[in-house]
Design a protein around this nucleic acid. Sequence first.
RNA 1: GGGGCGUUAACUCAGUGGUAGAGUGCCAUCUUCACACGGUGGAAGUCACUAGUUCAAAUCUAGUACGCCCCACCA
Length: 945
Amino acid sequence: MLEKSYMPGQVEGRWYEFWMQRGLFKADEHSEKPPFCIVIPPPNVTGKLHMGHALFVTIQDLLIRFKRMQGYEALWLPGSDHAGIATQVMVERALAQEGKSRLELGREEFLRHVWAWKEEKGGSIIEQLKLLGASCDWERERFTMDAGLSRAVAEAFVRLYEEGLIYRDERLVNWDPVAQTVLSDLEIDQNLEEGNLWHIKYVLEGSEEAIVIATTRPETLFGDMAVAVHPDDERYKHMIGRRVALPLCDRYIPVIADGELAQPEFGTGAVKVTPAHDFNDFECGKRHDLPRLQVIDLYARMNDNVPEPYRGLTREQAREKAVADLEELGLLLSVTPHSYAPSRSQRSGVMVEPLLLPQWWVNAGVLAKPAIEAVQSGKTRMIPKLWEKTYFNWMHNIRDWCISRQLWWGHQIPAWYCEDCSQGHIHRIHKEGEHDADLRVDAEAKPIVSRERPEACPSCGGANLTRDPDVLDTWFSSGLWPFSTLGWPDDTASLRKFYPTQVMETAADIIFFWVARMMMFGIHFMGETPFKDVYFHALVRDKHGQKMSKTKGNVIDPLLLIYGCRPEDVPEDERLASMQLFDDYPEGVDAQGADALRFSLTMLAAQGRDVRLDIRRIEGYRAFLNKLWQASRFVFMNIEGHETRAKLSQGVEGLCFALDGLSFIDAWILDALETCVVEVTRHLEEFSFNDAAQCIYEFLWNSYCDWYIELAKTVLYDKSEGAEKAQESTRCVLLYVLETVLRLLHPFAPFITEEIWQALPKAEGAPESIMIAPWPESVPERLNAKARAQTQTLIAIVAAVRQIRGEANISPSKAIPSAIFLIDDAEKQAILRETAAAIRSLAKIEDFDIAASDVEKPKACAVAVADGIEVVIPLAGLIDIDEELARLDKNIAKLKKDIESSTKKLSNPNFVQRAKPEVVATERERVERHTLELEKLQEAKERLL
RNA sequence: GGGGCGUUAACUCAGUGGUAGAGUGCCAUCUUCACACGGUGGAAGUCACUAGUUCAAAUCUAGUACGCCCCACCA
């Protein structure tokens, strides 16, 4: 027997262990079953569980458990990502607290530290996924830096290099002067900020005349190589080809015409050109063959190419000094406020400095082509479809991907340089107190790309080789994830069985970072798209729609919700991050359980919409699970000691009752169950998870609990003779429906369903867990339109009496002594007779008569019409006449309004002619029905007056 | 500049051509034998605005307002 109330903590503890011990999450690559595989979006190894993880675990586990029950060989392949920059920054920060830096430690020693850190803290995110019930095949857990995946990375790199799709080149790149690495275009944020526009005079050579340029970055003027104006700009036409004196510097630069860079409307129409520190200027410089003068170094300080007084200043200091000096010289014309969008590093938040540096690149255009075609042809679908547009848009305009990073934590690029052949192009900058030299390799050095360290230089045979110090962008290894995790480059049984995977489920914000790269690499290396469907889930936001962030204090930690929390028990930094939560719940939050969280996220995550997480809704769904718990208790209490248990022990199908021997109520709940099974299955197959969950919710609460169980009570508690047969059938149906719903609900709420299911009597040879029990199948024979109509009548009658009771404020403890149901239809009379006991009990009427509609009614009575049946209840001191009149008036008004609008429709010839015939018929029937009802209510009113 | 999304009850959200639904909250009432994490009844919305298409629009089209996101940026 189950505990009196549902305690998620107690229930959830025991089952995960059980599943693991029995090896139920394991997938067999040699199985005959059709494959269903999802590879997990690998969370950052140093990460901490947040709502985004909870959401993806919920959806992916839902899919995996659903498919596993449906008979697929379901593989959910887990793992984690080394997260290059994020992890390195974190470890460096920890080292800094000990007063150490990575440069002091040297590369090898630093990497030992990172690995130690990974071993110590890396497991926690994985353990947290388990708490949510994730049914991953943990024996296959991978890490992007493990030996196998590192081999895959080297293999991919070498192949792409040999195919000419990877190359090394010196270009203008986004440099993060704090993280000391280059960043890809995707790792940069641009948001509008307030800045200034400085107007500076550049005086024409040999003239008093000046050209005024407008700039947001006056400190870069030291690198100016030209001033550009629009060729058609009348103001400046005569200056084109002449030279201007570069302020603060002892040199002259030309005025050039460039219609692409210079827009006459903006600023003064004249723009300074700094090819080494601005992407647009770089392009302009190429067009005009301008030299590039780098004036800012890797640490964002002014280098030796600027006049002496500025050398060594930071960008900011240099700007301040330059502006002051210009002002003194009378060259600063004005400063106006100007909002602009500077590029900032997503990691450090610092302004990125465009610098000219040699880096490794992937020729993305070639790889993108088939990846675009795969989606166009429908080989891979994106759901919701609107993301396909975003995907195409980016893919069509894709730029080469900068894959090298000046970090130590990551896959070191498998390229070496021959010290002899590349002499003079390999620079070591050794700083005092630092263990390793800072290694810089010019673009001119010739790389030797190889899977393993080469023995000797293929050109000169020399053995003096130095490895490229850079590592690869984290997303390079992530891009290989769907096949590297299955054993690639080896031809393994797992790879053959599970590639291509069926579903990729992830957040849309990494569509470019990850999905696009997996598509490109998957097609290139495997010859097939890595997945059939890509389902994008929404972002989880707080209840006001704000992105969750620690600094905003609106984080909702999934674990706090699952296990509950009191503010005083939460560590301070976490409490600050969850400030909003504790403002709303000063006493803390009760334990909701992983099942309630999962069910809530499923309900909230409608396709294509962001999720605003409201704890009150989670509480509502926990109440739903408690309802399931209580209903199960009811079933257990009632089958205890009866044959039903023995019947179930022959298997659920042993519960096979003769469908024609059932009461219409039994038949009705089976009919509703059939609809529920079909709908839930369909919705899951269409990725409409919220609709699927909604179906189960409504069936269980509104049909099963509110009506079937209540109706069952009248059968089960019937003491009269001969009731035993109906009772046994009711018990069977109660149990059968519960068991089926548990299986339907299992993928949504795995713990509670397992707990209840295990308490059911087991059949010989039954599966050892609900998670490997078969998914409920559709049994069309269960559909029963007649039973549906009959039950509808019953429900309408009970509801009508309840309405009278409710509005007349008749105490629920007070029985109504008598009632009359007036109806001519013999079938409906039969329904009333058949369910007399149920009506008496649910409406709490002591007795009632059934009569034809022309029978004379008592004078003072309350009247309602339900499904064509006139429900008459003698007032007999129970009901206040005025209240009853008010109730009648309200219903009469409602009917009148309804009839009026329907009549109006029907009097429109266009409607009658053009609307679908069934719609017109419905409308006619509606008027008829309501008119009849109205008449009856009006008569009742007259009798009262 | 380009693209996308949203605007439905007090709050959080479903719905998507045929007269509006859920959860929470609210009002009334009830602790009887599954459940007060509950039962029963009730109140609550010109479905942002304006046009158009249609017999019929919350639902389709166009535009307006407000909010949000992505991409590309003019110094």
